[in-house]
Write a protein that binds this DNA or RNA. Structure first.
Lengths: 230, 230
DNA sequence: GTATTATTGTAACAAAACGAGACAATAGTT
DNA sequence: AACTATTGTCTCGTTTTGTTACAATAATAC
């Protein structure tokens, strides 16, 4: 089987890119040309490039964003996870030379990263092999190829565990946001409803927020304050 | 540079093997022949072997244990972490052919795992390249080569985070243990002292322990109960 | 034996955190 | 001017945690 000396062999990365549309947690999923295969955005690591940079560049290219919040969550290394049949179909449907790209059919370790990005700011760009990249709500995902579904589950699990210790909201919300928006981010990630008063009290007591002017939304009720992270 | 087709190229694993000697948290560190280099036990992943199995086998061989509790904690992928000079010295001091083992001098991604094992049960075996493998207290480690020190720090960090969610004590203690021993494990991992009464109340309220007979230690005070995990 | 000692198990009370409900303030609608 | 939905805050009761206290007890010293 052929190789590609530019990349580390048998290693890939996959990214679970989270965004928040105001009410739902979403991730980016791409679809490969004429195959029906849905997949997480992924890529390979160049021989003279750090793992973090490889992921950063890949996510940047697809989202048009710089300064992306990334967190590594797991490395997938089972034998069963790799499926040369699937990769072969993707290559042939893209009219790619199996001689040249045969290295993609081998067994791969894949390092999983999740990204938290501001949903509003992205401008999506599919890569060469895929004809679309789109947001999907995390509870309405299409069937994902290989072990990508498991990757999403595990990313979510780690994200939930990190929720208390890292300022997750900062990366999923605009700079200024209401308490309700912040609560909705937490609820979307945890997949459960939170008590409004308890949530508000806790957030305020943590001393991480700055209160700004009120936000007048043109609604028939009291206007909420805007907050930002300190 | 030569290759070895049996292994995935440019990928290794390293293991932080924790044990508890009754009062201190310790890890296994090996020393390479005639080099002064101290390192974490590591190895490579065979092309037809899962990542988990590779680590399991490596740790088994060095400790003589089966059924080892392993947890992956991070994959290290910077460019600077690899140092061909160090690897070259290790190879030459072991009289190994640079032509045959030259693939070890390249750039490596390394997947970090930590293991929790029963200190009493191990029978240590150095591998071919190292002349010793020994327990070191985590606050009296020798200078470790490359980024192995950082690996230990990060393993500890993840272990601490997992302390509440996983039954860490089960793997570091004998089957039956006293409440004080359990507390000492927690204190050693957290690096801080815990209140005896609060700790005891919390552990008992979690409904994970079974109380057995008392342990008479020949000491001039009340004998503690022995416990095991449910 | 009996007093002594250090440690253990648990109770008791105080302080802090949290759940649940209530209510006043208020931006816009009717 | 009355009404509506949402927000910010307070209260009160419950649960959890921190702290102190104390009785029980296994071995030792006498």
């Amino acid at each position: 089987m052929t190789e590609n000396r530019d990349f580390i062999q048998n290693v890939s990365y996959d990214s679970v890119i989270f965004g928040f549309n105001g009410s739902q947690l979403k991730i980016l999923v791409l679809e490969y040309h004429n195959t029906g295969y849905f997949a997480l955005p992924g890529g390979f690591v160049k021989m003279n490039e750090s793992l973090d940079d490889a992921v950063k560049n890949g996510v940047s290219q697809r989202t048009g964003l710089q300064d992306i919040y990334l967190e590594q969550f797991y490395t997938f290394g089972s034998l069963e996870r790799s499926d040369p049949k699937i990769m072969e179909k993707i290559l042939t449907e893209n009219n790619l030379d199996l001689e040249q790209y045969g290295w993609m059919l081998g067994r791969f370790l894949s390092i999983g990263y999740y990204a938290l990005i501001n949903y509003e700011e992205v401008s999506l760009k599919p890569d060469e092999l895929s004809d679309s990249i789109n947001w999907y709500s995390i509870d309405e995902l299409p069937p994902l190829m290989m072990d990508h579904r498991e990757m999403v589950e595990r990313a979510l699990e780690v994200l939930r565990n990190n929720l208390e210790r890292k300022l997750v909201g900062m990366n999923l919300l605009p700079v200024k946001f209401t308490m309700k928006q912040l609560q909705q981010v937490y609820e979307a990630i945890l997949g459960e409803e939170l008590r409004r008063t308890t949530f508000q009290r806790k957030m305020l007591s943590m001393d991480i927020l700055v209160r700004h002017e009120k936000l007048f939304q043109g609604k028939a009720h009291k206007a909420p304050y805007l907050y930002s992270f300190k």
